[in-house]
Design a protein around this nucleic acid. Structure first.
Length: 311
DNA sequence: AGTAAGAAACCCCAGCAAAT
DNA sequence: ATTTGCTGGGGTTTCTTACT
């Protein structure tokens, strides 16, 4: 699939390097720039330099691609309230100082669900390796200036060749992902519907897919709709919450929502970045030592997944 | 013999669905 | 509402090997 240049320009207002590095696969990070696939469009990819300069490539140049790109980068998202709360929080105050200009990158509903399903019952390493392998094993590329760039497979491509999910190491999660692909292709699940209703309703809609529970649904919602009221809380975070704030694990989620309000899901993700998604035992040691900012030596981490490309 | 690196074994962990 | 079992790879410990 050959893409042509649709637009170029310069954006500003956020930290493009942090925004592009956090939870991005190594295929798409390259020295002083990175690639972002633009949701809700035909196949489109933006090359974004840390300076904010960008080049936008697509199969057919739509009008509002730049707008979609800005949305996906959270360019107009006002996080001052979140960072104000974070600055008074023991886990995220240091993070708040360093990551004020960071924004969460959005993906379309399909890819958000793929990401979320890969994380099920998996450590950070296991989940992201599976996602990395998934992209590699399907081996679909777009061509930008005659150079191939791997792209995520579409739900149709996954349904056409479901065996590759096993090779990617998804294990039994493959079954869930196939049901997700099915739901997307048949239109049972549609972004417009999900985005129109409350997050609570959206969550229950997604959960109608067997294998999609609250964690998966909420992570996917946060990534695809930029609405953060319902946090994904896994055992890792639940344990951390209960220890740091002296609440029972049973009450941890309720506590988290009361604490962060409409920023709950963003706070969940921020904690994983701040602690490099290290395994629980190590994360707890770091918290005890007050080491709650990302450590560049930790690999792989949400900020640095280059290791998967070197395996 | 002592030690470090490498391999293997063991246990543990994860989110979800189903059972209770 | 709470507990249990599923499933597959990661983490940790233990054992083996190789080298000084």
């Amino acid at each position: 699939m050959k893409l042509s240049l649709c637009a170029r320009g310069r954006l500003s207002g956020i930290d493009f390097e942090k925004t592009m590095r956090v939870y991005n696969l190594c295929f798409w990070i390259n020295g002083d720039h990175a690639y972002a696939f633009i949701p809700w469009s035909s196949v489109s990819v933006a090359r974004i330099y840390w300076s904010g300069e960008y080049e936008l490539y697509s199969t057919n140049c739509e009008e509002d691609l730049v707008e979609k790109l800005e949305w996906a980068l959270g360019l107009r998202e006002d996080l001052s309230e979140f960072y104000e709360l974070a600055s008074r929080d023991p886990l995220l105050s240091e993070f708040a100082k360093l990551f004020k200009e960071w924004r969460l990158r959005s993906a379309d509903l399909w890819w958000s669900l793929v990401v979320a399903v890969c994380q099920q019952n998996a450590s950070f390493k296991q989940g992201w390796r599976a996602l990395h392998e998934l992209v590699r094993v399907y081996g679909k590329s777009v061509y930008v200036e005659n150079a191939p760039i791997l792209r995520p497979p579409t739900p149709l491509e996954v349904l056409e060749d479901p065996e590759r999910l096993r090779r990617a190491g998804l294990g039994y999660r493959a079954e869930t992902l196939l049901r997700v692909a099915e739901s997307i292709v048949t239109g049972v699940i549609k972004y417009e519907d999900i985005n129109r209703v409350s997050v609570e309703e959206a969550e229950s809609t997604l959960r109608r897919i067997k294998g999609v529970g609250p964690y998966t649904a909420r992570l996917a919602l946060a990534l695809s709709t930029r609405r953060y009221e319902l946090p994904p809380v896994d055992r890792w975070l639940r344990r951390i919450i209960s220890i740091v704030y002296s609440v029972s694990e049973r009450e941890a989620e309720k506590f988290w929502i009361e604490k962060w309000g409409k920023w709950s899901a963003l706070a969940s993700l921020a904690v994983t970045v701040a602690l490099d998604a290290e395994v629980l035992s190590k994360a707890l040691v770091r918290i005890k030592r007050g080491e709650v900012t990302p450590n560049p030596r930790v690999k792989p981490s949400p900020l640095n997944m280059s290791g998967f490309c070197e395996e």
